[in-house]
Structure formats: structure tokens, C-alpha cells
Write a protein that binds this DNA or RNA. Structure first.
Lengths: 176, 176
DNA sequence: CACCTGACTATGTTTTTGCCAAGTCAGGGT
DNA sequence: ACCCTGACTTGGCAAAAACATAGTCAGGTG
């Protein structure tokens, strides 16, 4: 196993003692939104075509209170929108539909399912995700905008605004 | 917005009233392992090259008790391995290194960072992930094994073992 | 042997997440 | 007007996650 089997840190903070993504990396914001088990299960069912409150509750096996709470939060975060619908002879209800922002979670959902499927250390029989047109299995792959498939040892990270971070750190050191 | 902007359900359970991935989809297993905020933050720092206990604690801003507990669990789940190391004049300690299984989380981490970066609704300045060789930004893309880039409306899912599920459901209906 | 200190562990507490049961509310139907 | 019922909301509770503080332990060093 190589020492490069990590994302290389670039820029002024590349040194291990200086590096911090804490407070800068927006994975934390992503985890604010979909970082609970229940939120992710609701999102999964939205991707599997669930739209109605009762079917989201049934499929996730979460309590109605939790499903209602997660949907409210996902709506507030712009992940779903409410759309009125009406079956004949019944009153108008809302269905929940993924927004553009919500559909942006697609690689995350696929990546989690794919990784989980690789474990095979539980009782579950699993699902398979496929490309409908050719029936080939799906996976989430890390690529760059040039189209290269990028293995972990060719990945790098830098803080977007190092000047800002430098200034922050200078201020943080003073009142000690 | 099209009704196909979801993963199409295939197979015997494609009907919305029958569909359930609950108990079959291994996203739940993935969430068992990395489904807490603290686990994901520790995994992030492992990808950013953190290996030592104290630097993982510093970078994640989690309490030492939580970092210790998460590392123990990640070790038990085969995500990291402990490797002894020794700096001169100091005693032997363990460092934590991602295993193959742990590196398999790479698309998940990239997908979460990428999605979070797209939000831009917080104070964070963000990080950028790049392909070191060409400096082009990274993203997690959903592709099939034939190499096609698969948009959401061309994705489909089926339960792997429908016979088993059918049998389960038959048994579950009896004692009502 | 005594001491230092990094890596935990233990305990109690706080916060967050999730559950259950009961309740509210509003849109249709009668 | 009354009733039904789907979609929540509320309150209390339990479990899980995380924190703070103090403690333990063991590998080095002097």
C-alpha cells in the first residue's frame, strides 16, 4: 500500500500539521442536509420514485413524525418541492418531487448503494442499479472535467481561498 | 420536470404499492458504517492524509472519545487498519490507514464534497478537488460498466433476488 | 524506579434523533 | 352541518450520538 493512497493536500496548508478542512470543506454542509440515516433513507425512496407521504413512510419504515420532519427540512433546503395532486373522488394532497438540487444527490445515492453492496456482510440480498438502455451495472466514478478517470492517488485538494484562511489563522493566534 | 426523473423500478415489485427496498438495499449497511456525521468526518480526514490519532481529533474538531470510538468501529468494519510507527526518541504508536474497503469510499466522499460545494449557502469558502495531472476539477459521475454516462432518467433498479423477496412477502401476509 | 505523555477509557451530561400515541386540521363527501 | 381521513403536529420518552472531565495505562526516558 502506497503513501499516496490519499488525496494529496496542495497549497500553503499542505503540511500535515497545518492542514485543516474544518470549517472550510462543504462536506459538513452536505452532512447538515443529508447526514442523518433517516434523511438519507427518505432521499433514497424519492430517487426510487416515491412521492407520497404514506408511501415514503411505508418504504423507509420510519415513523410518520420523522418522515414529516425530514420532508419539511428537505423542502426548506430546496431538495424537494411540494406539488399538489388529486386522485378522483379524493381531496387535493401534496406529493414530494426532487428538485434540480435534489437530483444532484444522485451520485451520492449510487455511490452509497454501490459501496454497501460490496460489503456483503449482512443478511440483505441487495439491489442492482443498471443503465436501462444497455442493462450494464451502474457505479459512481471519480472523473475530472477532462474526462479522465481519476484514481485516489491522482487526486488533490486545496482550500479555495487560502488568503482568507491565512488571515483567519493569523487572527486566531493573537488572543492566546 | 419529467416523471422519469427518478430511478425506474424494474421487476415484480416495480409497482409503487409493492415496491420496497427496505431490508434489501445495502445503502442501509453503508449507513450503519459511515452514516454518522462523526464517522464521515473522520473518514474525510483519512482521505486527506490524516493518520494519527491527535491530528484526526484536531482536524475533525470532535472529542477524543468520539474519534477513538469511531476509529475502533472503522477498524472493526475493515475500513482502516492500524499500523505501528515510531518517531525517533518516542515510543511506538499506531497510525490509521485506509484499507481497500476504506478507499472504496472515495466516490462517496467526492460526491458529498461536490454536492456540498454546489450549495454555497453558508459561510464556508470551500475546497476544490482536482486531478493532479491536469488540474481539472473532480466530480463523481454515474456511469455504467459499458462506460456510458448515465443520467438519472436512464437509471433503473431491481431487487437482486425477487424469488426470495416473493417468498418473504408470502410468509409475511399469512399471520395477519 | 519514577515520571511523562499520548492514546485511549469511563462516567455523567447534553444534544440530537427517532418512536409512540394521541391530537389537530382541513378538504371533500354525504 | 357533520363526518371521514390523510397529513401532519405535539408531548413525552427512549436511544443514539456527542461532549466534558477525569482517570488509566503503557512505552519510553532519565
Amino acid at each position: 500500500m502506497s503513501e499516496t493512497d490519499v488525496i494529496e493536500r496542495l497549497g500553503a496548508f499542505s503540511e500535515r500539521e497545518l492542514w485543516t478542512a474544518k470549517g472550510f470543506c462543504r462536506i459538513e454542509r452536505a452532512l447538515d442536509v443529508v447526514g442523518t440515516r433517516s434523511a438519507m433513507l427518505v432521499v433514497r425512496e424519492l430517487f426510487y420514485g416515491g412521492t407520497r407521504f404514506d408511501e415514503l413512510a411505508r418504504r423507509t419504515n420510519l415513523s410518520e413524525a420523522v418522515v414529516a420532519s425530514r420532508l419539511k427540512q428537505l423542502h426548506a433546503d430546496g431538495i424537494v418541492e411540494r406539488r399538489p395532486y388529486q386522485e378522483e373522488g379524493q381531496r387535493t394532497r401534496d406529493e414530494y418531487v426532487l428538485t434540480d438540487r435534489g437530483r444532484g444527490l444522485f451520485p451520492i445515492v449510487v455511490a452509497l448503494i454501490q459501496w454497501g453492496e460490496g460489503l456483503k456482510d449482512d443478511h440483505r440480498t441487495g439491489v442492482e442499479l443498471v443503465h436501462r438502455d444497455c442493462d450494464a451495472p451502474l457505479s459512481a466514478q471519480v472523473r475530472c472535467e477532462k474526462g479522465h478517470e481519476v484514481p485516489l492517488d491522482q487526486a488533490a485538494v486545496r482550500l479555495k481561498d487560502e488568503k482568507y484562511v491565512t488571515a483567519l489563522r493569523s487572527r486566531a493566534r493573537k488572543p492566546r
